[in-house]
Amino acid sequence: MNYTIQASQRTPALIIYLIDISASMNMLMDNKRRIDIVYEALSLAIRQMVFRSTKGSRLTPRYRIAILAYSDDVYDLLNGIKGIDEIAAVGSLPDLTPKRFSDAAKAFLQAERILQSELPHIQDCPAPLVCHMTDGVATGDDPEPIAKRIMNMSVPDGNVLVENIFISDHMLNAPIPQPRRWKGVLPETELVDEHAVKLRNMSSQLPESYREMLVEADYLLEPGALMMLPGSCAELVSIGFQMSAATPVRA
């Protein structure tokens, strides 16, 4: 239970992305639509996974990915779980088009179903990770109880990890001037937004093995930091997606 199993061809890591595509994702941040920043950050994370899966000129499928976009409904953008090699072969991710509402509970429910079906077959693999990105209050049912159930699911490597990227300028008391020097959201960090507090309750503690990978990439998150990022700028959104792909791999 220490999140040290390395993602490999034989023991690939499973990552499920839950992407909020509600209408507010059309709003601007850093002069770009939020949805475009998310698309770029997700594409960068996929690229990072390709980087970490390449041996010689060969791409070894060390990661398996599902991408669920949600609004009033849930849209399975990859039609199931796809290997990183299959995604790289296609070359780009499906478009993310904002729709209306933001029913996060439906997305977490679908993630839970995927995990229920996958867990028996991935007992030797790294603990799966659910990376949730949203920019506002969920409409529909409360996603927290489902997220908690997911966080209680486990494989020998550890409990399923849940990460939240909250695109908001109003989550913390003060802005983060230098994202690379930022210590992360800790359990005692004061959050000024009620929805942020809920998302924190739905966020796992950052495993030490993940933290070490991020330190290698020059991000100084503190031990005990939670898997929660305030997406107040493009770089923080990008750190959030990089965190999701920080499963240990063999050098």
């Binding site: 690229r47 390709v50 980087f51 390449t54 791409l59 296609v90």
Partner: peptide, 8 residues
């Protein structure tokens, strides 16, 4: 693939 080529 183009993505793998860029990474390489």
């Amino acid at each position: 693939s183009p993505l793998l080529r860029e990474v390489l």
